[in-house]
């Protein structure tokens, strides 16, 4: 595809081509690819409009140069193009060093497996001119779950009565869909609430970002389950509740001294799981789901379905307390 053809397509899409526009079919040097440049993948030109950032963690976040928001010049659709950035790194989880991998191959496999499954982002992978595995993903319009909850400007008690049931009910199917991956021998890998987007067009929550991987031979879905616990705690607690937050909040003055080590996450000793201690109106059954991830737990959840069965049962207790005013 030559420069004139690309420029004609850009004009057709109602945009102006930049004088410094580069047209590339080798995406190896993703740091050098800037908004205004065009990547040609499998004969399809994609105009880069921006580098993506982690959703919902403020504006100061470093851009992710390997995740480009683009416009497909052939169809006019917005596409997220994820370029190859293989990483292996060690992260501490609960004091244990865990190897994580950012694997394009793994993300491509998951995309293939979830084709047609509405609760996951959709896309496909292509090899660029030099064999880099590039993933081309449909753009989902809508906020991430953490933004959606973070934007509720109200007290926790008001949130609990007015929004919690609706949000939890809405997100249940999406959370449960992780078991579809597990049944197919795959993991999500980075189960966090900013990796769930509320798709405004389809009116449902959907998973994004499948490139993380970890390897626990006996508990291959362990990190996904831990992430699930964290997400549910964040939804119920209207964000993560950490010891420092509780201590700094004058509302909880009387409670801080009553907190026991067991009230916190079994893995993150500063993340409060026993939310009923600070929000006593949280029903017991819902709180019990969270306690399965706390120091009190003697039996652990072994599958997504086990968590979701308990969560759905617990939702029954919220029906009585919710009002939509």
């Amino acid at each position: 595809m030559n420069k004139n053809e690309v420029e004609a397509l850009i004009t057709e899409r109602g945009r102006k081509s930049s004088a410094r526009m580069r047209i590339v079919d080798d995406t190896s040097d993703f740091m050098a690819l800037n908004p205004g440049d065009v990547m040609v993948l499998n004969d399809n030109p994609y105009l880069i409009t921006r580098n993506e950032k982690e959703s919902g963690f403020g504006q100061d976040d470093d851009p992710k140069f390997w995740v480009k928001r683009t416009i497909s010049l052939l169809t006019g659709e917005i596409k997220i193009v994820k370029l190859v950035f293989f990483e292996e790194f060690v992260q501490e989880v609960g004091g244990y060093k865990i190897h994580f991998y950012r694997s394009p191959i793994k993300e491509a496999r998951v995309l293939e497996a979830v084709r047609g499954h509405s609760l996951f982002m959709h896309g496909f992978d292509v090899n660029d001119n030099v064999g880099n595995n590039v993933r081309i993903i449909d753009f989902i319009r809508g906020p991430s779950l953490n933004k959606l909850v973070g934007n509720c400007n109200m007290s926790h008690e008001h949130y609990f009565h007015s929004r919690l049931l609706e949000i939890l009910t809405g997100v249940c199917d999406c959370l449960q869909s992780l078991s579809y991956l597990h049944e197919n021998g795959l993991v999500h890998g980075d189960v966090r609430w900013d990796h769930i987007l509320y798709d405004r067009d389809q009116k449902r929550y959907r998973w994004i970002d499948f490139d993380y991987n970890y390897d626990f031979p006996e508990n291959p879905f362990g990190m996904d389950l831990i992430g699930l616990g964290e997400i549910i705690t964040c939804i119920v607690g209207m964000g993560g509740c950490f010891y420092s937050d509780v201590k700094a909040n004058p509302m909880f003055k009387g409670v801080v001294d009553q907190l026991q080590p067991e009230d916190f996450s079994i893995l993150e000793q500063n993340r409060l799981m026993n939310l009923r201690k600070i929000y006593p109106y949280i029903p017991e059954r819902l709180n019990n789901v969270l306690l399965h991830f706390s120091g009190y737990a003697t039996v652990f959840y072994e599958s997504v379905d086990e968590v979701l069965n308990d969560l759905r049962d617990a939702l029954g207790d919220l029906e009585g307390v919710s009002n939509t005013n």
């Binding site: 626990f216 006996e218 508990n219 990190m223 893995l267």
Partner: peptide, 14 residues
């Protein structure tokens, strides 16, 4: 530890 068992699973227990 309990946390390790939770995280990594335990072959003999299963």
């Amino acid at each position: 530890t309990k946390a390790q068992e939770f995280l990594f699973g335990d072959v003999p227990i299963r």
